[in-house]
Design a protein around this nucleic acid. Structure first.
Length: 115
DNA sequence: ATTCTGACGTGGG
DNA sequence: CCCCACGCCAGAA
Protein backbone atom coordinates (compact mmCIF):
# COMPACT_ATOMS: atom_id res chain seq x y z
CA UNK A 1 0.00 0.00 0.00
CA UNK A 2 2.55 2.58 0.98
CA UNK A 3 4.57 1.37 -1.94
CA UNK A 4 1.88 2.60 -4.26
CA UNK A 5 3.45 3.47 -7.59
CA UNK A 6 3.71 7.08 -8.58
CA UNK A 7 0.77 6.79 -10.96
CA UNK A 8 -1.40 5.25 -8.30
CA UNK A 9 -0.75 8.22 -6.07
CA UNK A 10 -1.71 10.51 -8.90
CA UNK A 11 -4.90 8.57 -9.45
CA UNK A 12 -5.79 8.93 -5.80
CA UNK A 13 -5.76 12.68 -6.17
CA UNK A 14 -7.16 12.83 -9.68
CA UNK A 15 -10.28 10.90 -8.78
CA UNK A 16 -10.87 13.39 -6.01
CA UNK A 17 -11.07 16.32 -8.37
CA UNK A 18 -14.56 17.77 -7.95
CA UNK A 19 -17.00 17.89 -10.84
CA UNK A 20 -16.67 20.98 -12.97
CA UNK A 21 -13.28 21.75 -11.49
CA UNK A 22 -9.78 21.54 -12.89
CA UNK A 23 -6.29 21.30 -11.50
CA UNK A 24 -2.75 21.32 -12.77
CA UNK A 25 -0.13 18.61 -12.95
CA UNK A 26 2.20 20.64 -10.81
CA UNK A 27 -0.43 21.01 -8.09
CA UNK A 28 -0.91 17.27 -7.92
CA UNK A 29 2.80 16.60 -8.07
CA UNK A 30 3.43 19.09 -5.34
CA UNK A 31 0.72 17.55 -3.22
CA UNK A 32 2.43 14.22 -3.64
CA UNK A 33 5.67 15.82 -2.58
CA UNK A 34 7.15 15.61 -6.04
CA UNK A 35 6.70 19.11 -7.34
CA UNK A 36 9.61 18.56 -9.68
CA UNK A 37 7.99 15.51 -11.11
CA UNK A 38 5.05 17.34 -12.58
CA UNK A 39 5.82 15.66 -15.88
CA UNK A 40 5.49 12.30 -14.25
CA UNK A 41 1.96 13.20 -13.27
CA UNK A 42 1.08 13.49 -16.91
CA UNK A 43 2.82 10.21 -17.50
CA UNK A 44 0.73 8.54 -14.88
CA UNK A 45 -2.33 10.04 -16.51
CA UNK A 46 -1.30 8.48 -19.77
CA UNK A 47 -1.53 5.10 -18.09
CA UNK A 48 -4.87 6.22 -16.71
CA UNK A 49 -6.26 5.07 -20.04
CA UNK A 50 -6.52 1.74 -18.28
CA UNK A 51 -8.40 3.44 -15.47
CA UNK A 52 -11.62 4.88 -16.92
CA UNK A 53 -12.51 6.33 -13.55
CA UNK A 54 -9.70 8.82 -13.79
CA UNK A 55 -10.99 12.23 -14.90
CA UNK A 56 -7.83 13.08 -16.76
CA UNK A 57 -9.72 15.75 -18.68
CA UNK A 58 -9.88 17.76 -15.45
CA UNK A 59 -6.11 17.93 -15.31
CA UNK A 60 -4.46 20.66 -17.33
CA UNK A 61 -1.16 22.42 -17.23
CA UNK A 62 -0.48 25.49 -15.12
CA UNK A 63 -1.62 27.75 -17.94
CA UNK A 64 -5.00 26.08 -18.04
CA UNK A 65 -4.30 24.70 -21.49
CA UNK A 66 -5.64 21.30 -22.49
CA UNK A 67 -2.19 20.09 -23.35
CA UNK A 68 -3.25 16.47 -23.19
CA UNK A 69 -6.31 16.78 -25.36
CA UNK A 70 -4.34 15.35 -28.21
CA UNK A 71 -3.89 12.16 -26.24
CA UNK A 72 -7.60 11.56 -25.86
CA UNK A 73 -9.44 9.33 -28.24
CA UNK A 74 -11.22 12.14 -29.99
CA UNK A 75 -9.56 15.37 -30.95
CA UNK A 76 -11.96 17.42 -28.88
CA UNK A 77 -13.01 14.78 -26.41
CA UNK A 78 -11.21 16.44 -23.54
CA UNK A 79 -12.78 19.80 -24.27
CA UNK A 80 -16.20 18.28 -24.70
CA UNK A 81 -15.94 16.54 -21.37
CA UNK A 82 -14.98 19.78 -19.66
CA UNK A 83 -17.73 21.76 -21.35
CA UNK A 84 -20.07 18.97 -20.39
CA UNK A 85 -19.21 19.80 -16.80
CA UNK A 86 -19.83 23.48 -17.29
CA UNK A 87 -16.20 24.41 -17.84
CA UNK A 88 -15.71 26.98 -20.54
CA UNK A 89 -12.97 26.05 -22.96
CA UNK A 90 -11.78 28.31 -25.74
CA UNK A 91 -8.89 27.46 -28.00
CA UNK A 92 -7.78 24.62 -25.73
CA UNK A 93 -7.68 27.10 -22.88
CA UNK A 94 -9.86 26.83 -19.80
CA UNK A 95 -11.76 30.03 -19.17
CA UNK A 96 -11.95 31.27 -15.59
CA UNK A 97 -9.12 28.87 -14.91
CA UNK A 98 -8.23 30.57 -11.65
CA UNK A 99 -11.83 30.29 -10.50
CA UNK A 100 -12.23 26.67 -11.52
CA UNK A 101 -8.79 25.74 -10.31
CA UNK A 102 -8.90 23.15 -7.58
CA UNK A 103 -5.78 22.78 -5.50
CA UNK A 104 -5.44 19.39 -3.78
CA UNK A 105 -3.12 20.85 -1.19
CA UNK A 106 -5.76 23.41 -0.42
CA UNK A 107 -8.87 21.25 -0.42
CA UNK A 108 -7.50 17.84 0.40
CA UNK A 109 -6.12 16.87 3.80
CA UNK A 110 -2.37 17.40 4.17
CA UNK A 111 -1.80 13.69 4.20
CA UNK A 112 -3.76 10.47 4.48
CA UNK A 113 -3.40 9.32 0.92
CA UNK A 114 -2.69 5.89 2.25
CA UNK A 115 -5.61 3.68 2.84
C1' DA B 1 22.55 -1.86 -18.38
C1' DT B 2 22.03 2.81 -21.18
C1' DT B 3 19.40 6.29 -23.81
C1' DC B 4 15.39 9.00 -24.94
C1' DT B 5 11.33 10.72 -24.41
C1' DG B 6 7.61 13.38 -22.28
C1' DA B 7 -0.27 15.25 -20.85
C1' DC B 8 5.30 20.30 -16.81
C1' DG B 9 7.30 24.09 -14.30
C1' DT B 10 10.34 27.80 -13.45
C1' DG B 11 13.64 31.28 -14.60
C1' DG B 12 15.75 34.62 -17.57
C1' DG B 13 15.59 37.92 -21.57
C1' DC C 1 2.61 39.59 -22.03
C1' DC C 2 5.76 36.19 -25.15
C1' DC C 3 9.70 33.11 -26.26
C1' DC C 4 13.84 30.15 -25.13
C1' DA C 5 16.59 26.99 -22.31
C1' DC C 6 17.21 24.00 -18.34
C1' DG C 7 15.83 20.84 -14.83
C1' DC C 8 13.53 16.68 -13.28
C1' DC C 9 12.34 11.85 -12.77
C1' DA C 10 9.94 7.62 -13.95
C1' DG C 11 8.80 4.43 -17.58
C1' DA C 12 9.57 2.51 -22.31
C1' DA C 13 12.66 0.97 -26.16
Amino acid sequence: MAEAGFFEKVYRVAVQIPYGRVTSYGAIAKYLGAAKSARMVGWAMNASGKHPSIPAHRVVNRKGLLTGKHHFKGTNLMQQLLESEGVEVLENQVQNFETLFWDPMLHLPPFEIEA
